[in-house]
Design a protein around this nucleic acid. Structure first.
Lengths: 192, 192
DNA sequence: ACCTATCCTGAACCACCGTTCATGTTGATG
DNA sequence: CATCAACATGAACGGTGGTTCAGGATAGGT
């Protein structure tokens, strides 16, 4: 298990450029942008793309992984705010979920590309971080008596993994209201 | 505007075979089945596909239109059951929505294909039928005091256009419970 | 300054898929 | 039954887009 030599500086730089260019191009020109366009936007040749990511699927997966990591950071920040006593858990959770909906709307093309290619981020770590933070927020909200005792992270995931990314902002807001209402203490489940 | 001659019998037959074959093949082999495979499954040559549907987009749109019509029928049947006094509006609505979720799970590949190709069913009539029936069910449920007064058809559409079609049955059921709960009288909106 | 493993370049390759069209077939009309 | 418009056939085409690879450049250690 000899430690592999550290990557060259320009390689690291290119990898970053490619990653951000990929995100931008997919968002701007739809989920079907060619590798050529991504490479051009990154100021790099196609071959370089394939040096860093063996396949387009891998590239998209890496882009998604970045986004997941960002969401995890967001969730942890929200939790920290609650833990320090500065904010109510329910409010932080609602605000966080609102941000999730907005960013998924922005990045919907990336999501679409990932689905089409069957790209799954190998980075389970970030997902776990997000899960843990959200779980803590839920528990805190339940302790406050704001969130229905039955609600779990799985529910949140279930609800928000299919947020309406193709709808106008007003519709997204309305959607958030409708969905959040169902998580609240006032609501009671009506069936098994 | 002379009345065009009636289509030939075998043409009608083929059109039907193509339509059902397209649905089956897309459902079975994913949203990216080639026209060749659809043609083969229909027992027909590719050219015949293009005689009936100028483009793949048109074909998929026609398949979607069929499904929409079926949903409209379902909604109207549910409404009829309520109107005849045999069923409670809330229950019929919930059951109807459950069926919608299940069928969208089955036909998710068709939906995906439609989205990829930008296929929009020119058949606004069926959509309007469904809308009208659901609206009536909502009003009845609100009159019964079961459904929150703010809820509209647009809300239903918003919620169910993003049903989790890629999740297992138990998750779909849970999702339905969570979403339906938010529509109930017991729930109160928590934000603007 | 030199050397080499690492990295980059980009034209070319290839497989796939929607679409077309010249040719052959068949249902309906009289 | 004869006739013809409507319909079906399926090989071939064109364009797209992911992927490869032989050759050239360069960072980084000695």
């Amino acid at each position: 298990m000899a430690q592999a030599r550290a990557p060259r500086a320009d390689a690291v730089r290119n990898r970053r450029k490619i990653l951000s260019a990929a995100g931008e191009q997919i968002t701007a020109h739809g989920p079907d942008v060619g590798m050529d366009e991504i490479a051009a936007a990154a100021g790099v040749a196609v071959g370089t793309l394939y040096r860093h990511f063996p396949t387009k699927t891998d590239l998209v997966a890496a882009v998604v992984a970045e986004h997941v990591a960002r969401v995890a950071d967001d969730a942890e920040a929200a939790l920290a705010r609650v833990a320090s006593g500065g904010a109510r858990a329910m409010d932080e959770l609602a605000a966080f979920l609102g941000r999730v909906v907005e960013t998924s709307a922005t990045d919907r093309a990336v999501k679409a590309a990932a689905q089409t290619l069957g790209a799954t981020p190998g980075d389970r770590a970030a997902e776990d971080r997000a899960s843990a933070a959200v779980t803590a927020l839920i528990h805190a909200g339940q302790a406050d008596g704001d969130i229905h005792p039955d609600v779990t992270v799985a529910d949140i995931y279930l609800l928000f993994s299919t947020a309406p990314t193709d709808q106008p902002a007003t519709a997204r807001t309305r959607w958030l209201t409708l969905v959040t209402t169902g998580l609240t203490t006032h609501a009671r489940a009506t069936s098994t």
